[in-house]
Design a protein around this nucleic acid. Structure first.
Lengths: 158, 158
DNA sequence: TCATGAAATTTCATACTTGAAATAATGCGC
DNA sequence: GCGCATTATTTCAAGTATGAAATTTCATGA
């Protein structure tokens, strides 16, 4: 979903280009997400949220807490619970207790989950290269660092 | 939700920077979206999808077809039906029949809808300026045109 | 120790989202 | 006119998403 161009600027002309940037940014990510979702579904019978969770877990073979997952993925706690539930019932992810704290559950990829993820991830990387193919590597680097810097400014953590 | 950094590149080093760019892009838009959702909720008791639909309709005082809305907003038909339903029951949007075609319904903002939208939109523009405040107007323009150009390449329409 | 507050997670109600199937109306070829 | 693909929309099931309330466990100070 994409915010439409709005009417005449509110505070002079300041912010007009930023507003356009936001709309383009959102439109770009929605378009790519949509194509990604489509391919994940047809080629691997999975979904983007599932892939995101698996990708997060893949980076941490020792496992992650539910709250870590939620924080890292920028989604709510309850949301992660549901996605992990489904991954567990598919045998791709396992929960374990942490010694000495029965509140927390440590979540990690199973062997099957890791194998599955590796397959999907290599396709994923190729797809992204394809989607962003006409952005030069130089531009990609510049753009990425631009996005990083603005983000760390208005958000708390780097 | 944000795809995690993946493991070593699949096809040499090609695409690594593009992958990073994608992750940053997604993370940036998710972060801004999240903050936006929050403010829309607390300050105007509305949601981002509602705002997006209203913004689309605001640009077209003559109204839009459901399918136009869905195409413009990059979301499914069924999705638009639900959001418009709720906007209608709030009195912000109205449906009308088109002369000579009983399949289509033309959707437009009501007076109340337009007034409401104007209020929210001016806040929205200020917020975006704030979120992207440390991106210079020059960078914003450059970035926006970069996003536009890559998008029109791998997608059908310009 | 024991109350009590904090932390980790799940549950819940509601809303959003998709893609596919169903419904309904149009228009075209014959 | 009739059949039939096409078009426009809604309905539906499943999954995703949020924020708030509930649950369970931990930790700490009186």
């Amino acid at each position: 979903m994409v915010s439409a161009p709005l009417f005449s600027p509110v505070i002079g002309n300041v912010g007009k280009d930023r507003l356009r940037l936001w709309i383009r940014l959102l439109r770009a990510s929605r378009t790519i997400e949509s194509e990604l979702r489509d391919r994940l579904k047809t080629e691997f019978n999975t979904t983007l949220p599932r892939f995101d969770v698996m990708a997060a877990l893949f980076r941490k073979p020792e496992g992650m807490l539910m709250s870590d997952l939620s924080r890292f993925l920028l989604v709510s706690n309850g949301n992660v619970t549901g996605i992990v539930d489904r991954l567990v019932s598919d045998g791709l992810v396992a929960r374990a207790q942490r010694e000495g704290d029965r509140r927390t559950s440590i979540v990690r990829l199973t062997e099957a989950g890791e194998a599955t993820f590796r397959k999907i991830a290599s396709a994923h990387e190729i797809w992204i290269g394809e989607f962003l193919g006409n952005v030069s590597e130089d531009d990609a680097r510049r753009l990425a660092s631009m996005l990083k810097s603005f983000r760390s400014n208005w958000e708390g953590e780097p």
